[in-house]
Amino acid sequence: MKVKENLELIQNEINEHLKKSPYAQKVNLVAVTKYVSNERALEALDAGVQHFGENRIEGYLEKKNLLKHVTMHFIGTLQTRKVKDVINEVDYLHSLDRLSLANEIEKRANHRVKCFVQVNVSGEASKSGLKVEEVDAFIETIKDYNHIEVVGLMTMAPEQATDEEIYSYFNALKALQLKIEALKYENVPCHELSMGMSNDYKIAVECGATYIRVGTKLVG
């Protein structure tokens, strides 16, 4: 299918599931283009997509150079030693998951980087991210960093999780986001939630997601 047709289908599903959400949020769709050609990415741009996500530095920089006047999201794990290679090209980072990375961003960035703190809500061993009980102390440590703005939290549900489990994980992240938002730290507005991919974005929307990261179902 053409990206435009996929986009219309996804937008309709977002709108339907927003009706089931207790939160009045705007949902931003991030097109994950890591496995598709430049032509397919340009097709997504022509269809009206304005947010693009990549998880490798090379692919990120290539897409940023290709796609003009869009918002670029680095959604993969960022190695500390690679921060200098990409951080000043990043609009949003979805994977702030450790203090060493925060310190390197603070050292290398020439602008305030909008970051999602990655939280491993499910406790899955193969997933990156802070444990839920580690988040408060992490926020306290970085809240006065000049080059980091914690715009929100991010998580990924396990691939084999049931719908019931996914609801539980996403609702837990929403509760944590609201708790941090209530602190009203200047550099930690924490209004946003990045959660939900091709297989579970509808649940994420119901649970308060403001950014969903969709690859396969949108661009293939």
Rank of each mutant, 00 (worst) to 15 (best):
Y60G: 11
T33V: 11
V90R: 00
I180G: 11
A157V: 07
S37I: 05
L9F: 09
V27A: 05
N88D: 10
A137M: 03
P158R: 10
L78Q: 09
E133G: 00
I10L: 14
K184V: 10
E134W: 00
I14M: 09
G53N: 09
K184R: 11
A102D: 06
G53C: 10
Q11W: 02
V151P: 02
L218T: 11
K107D: 06
Q177P: 01
I180P: 07
Y92R: 05
E133P: 02
N88V: 04
R40M: 03
G123A: 09
K68F: 02
K20I: 12
D136C: 04
A41R: 14
Y167K: 15
D91V: 03
I57G: 14
E133K: 01
S21R: 07
N38M: 05
L218E: 11
T80C: 04
L193D: 02
E134T: 00
N171D: 15
E43Q: 13
N38T: 05
E124A: 07
L130A: 13
H73A: 14
K107C: 03
K107R: 12
A209R: 01
K4V: 07
G196N: 05
N110E: 03
A172M: 14
K63T: 03
S128N: 13
S198T: 15
M197A: 00
K64P: 13
R112N: 04
V36D: 14
D163N: 14
L96D: 15
L99A: 10
F138G: 10
L101V: 12
K64W: 11
N15D: 14
D46P: 00
E54H: 15
Q177G: 06
K64E: 14
K114Y: 01
N12D: 11
N187K: 10
V70L: 01
T80K: 13
K127Q: 01
M195N: 11
S122A: 15
E104C: 06
E149A: 06
T155A: 08
G152A: 04
L93E: 08
E62A: 12
I10H: 10
S128K: 04
S194T: 03
K114D: 05
Y35T: 10
G152Y: 02
E124F: 00
L178W: 00
A47K: 10
A102M: 04
S21Q: 09
Y185P: 01
E13Q: 15
V70H: 01
K143M: 10
T77W: 02
N28E: 02
G152Q: 03
G48H: 08
Q118K: 06
H51R: 06
E104N: 09
V117P: 07
S37V: 12
V30H: 09
R40K: 07
L45A: 09
L96A: 15
E206F: 05
G215N: 09
T80N: 05
L29S: 06
A157C: 11
R112S: 12
G76H: 04
K20T: 14
D46G: 00
H51C: 10
I212W: 14
L176T: 01
Y23Q: 08
Y92E: 07
K127V: 03
S194P: 03
D97R: 13
H94N: 03
A157N: 10
E181W: 06
C207Y: 02
A204S: 12
K4R: 07
V219Q: 12
N187F: 06
I105L: 13
T77Q: 09
G215W: 08
N38I: 03
E181I: 04
N120A: 01
L42Q: 15
N120Q: 00
